[in-house]
């Protein structure tokens, strides 16, 4: 039995639900999950229903890591000697933007908590607004492409690096296109004492504009173009990367409505070139090319 029950209100092809299945398959039942406000919270817990088969708490948008800190110390204070793990599963808005203060506090204090960000690169629950995790040139409802704009004009925030800068033992990225990779990394993370940070790339058919059957394909393309590199950092050092036979970024961009303007608008070629340069830099920095 999966630990996220069916009947949840995720859109057809929801990447976040796939992420949760991969995560909970790795943790098993002996876990307490903390989530911020967001798509995952809304699709899974319309009172009196809940899709969660594991204990789960949602408090607010920006305090997930602090609530998890409280849960973790409470278990300790009660003298619970069991192996129950405390994990957070939150979207990019609740993690890299509004929740980064409490995330930083939790990481710095050294709580035994695994924080997992399902990164769908915008505020999907409120209608696809730009977040700090939205990639360069993606059109969102608050960073739309227009006569004088190519969409989001800032690069994606490097949150794994920010997490790593806290000197925590384990940071990793993964993608819902690679469930075995998620499983391996979640198992590894929860076995390590102390704070851990994982960021899982999570395509969203509704927000990114692709057919619901292409969620996994789009996720794979992000990895294969080096726009979302997959790696592990242990004690601040890169210890593994997922090698790729690299594809040009157009292959990833052209299948999504959020980048459609790059293929229609004058100057789009130059923008795609810039995005390719980002991918090239990622590949070079991390040694992604096979």
């Amino acid at each position: 039995m999966k630990l996220l029950a069916p009947g949840h209100r995720g859109c057809a092809g929801c990447g976040a639900a796939i992420a949760v299945h991969s995560i909970l398959s790795a943790t098993g039942k002996d876990v307490i999950v903390v989530s911020p406000t967001g798509c995952l919270e809304v699709i899974s817990t319309p009172y009196p229903e809940s899709a969660w088969e594991v204990p789960w708490i949602h408090s607010l948008f920006e305090n997930t890591a602090a609530v998890a800190s409280g849960v973790e110390v409470a278990r300790r204070a009660l003298g619970r000697k069991d192996e129950t793990k405390v994990i957070c599963i939150g979207g990019d808005g609740g993690t890299v933007d509004i929740g980064i203060g409490s995330l930083s506090g939790m990481l710095e204090r050294g709580h035994d908590v695994t924080y997992i960000c399902y990164d769908n690169e915008a505020y999907m629950n409120t209608g696809i607004q730009r977040s700090g995790s939205t990639p360069y040139d993606a059109a969102t409802t608050t960073s739309p492409a227009g006569k004088i704009s190519f969409g989001n004009d800032r690069p994606k925030k490097n949150t794994p690096a920010i997490a790593a800068a806290h000197g925590i033992p384990y940071v990793a990225t993964s993608s819902i296109a690679y469930p075995a990779d998620i499983g391996k990394k979640v198992k590894k993370a929860i076995a390590i004492k102390g704070p851990k940070y994982l960021q899982i790339h999570t395509p969203c058919p509704t927000g990114w504009g692709f057919d619901s059957n292409r969620t996994i394909e789009v996720g794979r393309l992000a990895v294969e173009t080096a726009l979302f590199p997959i790696y592990e950092m242990e004690n601040g050092k890169i210890t593994s990367v997922k090698k790729i036979k690299r594809k040009p970024v157009e292959e990833y961009l052209k299948v999504q409505r959020r980048f459609a303007h790059l293929f229609k608008k004058e100057g789009g070629d130059a923008e795609i070139k810039k995005i390719q340069e980002t991918a090239d830099a990622n590949a070079k920095q991390l040694g992604l090319d096979m």
Partner: peptide, 27 residues
């Protein structure tokens, strides 16, 4: 015999209490 959590803001102070209270402790 209490866990004292030195948080980074009052917002997190009350949030730690929320998590800890839901986990069954006096906060």
């Amino acid at each position: 015999k209490a866990e004292y959590v030195r948080v980074e803001s009052e917002f997190s102070a009350i949030s730690v209490c929320i998590g800890a209270s839901a986990a069954g402790t006096r906060t």
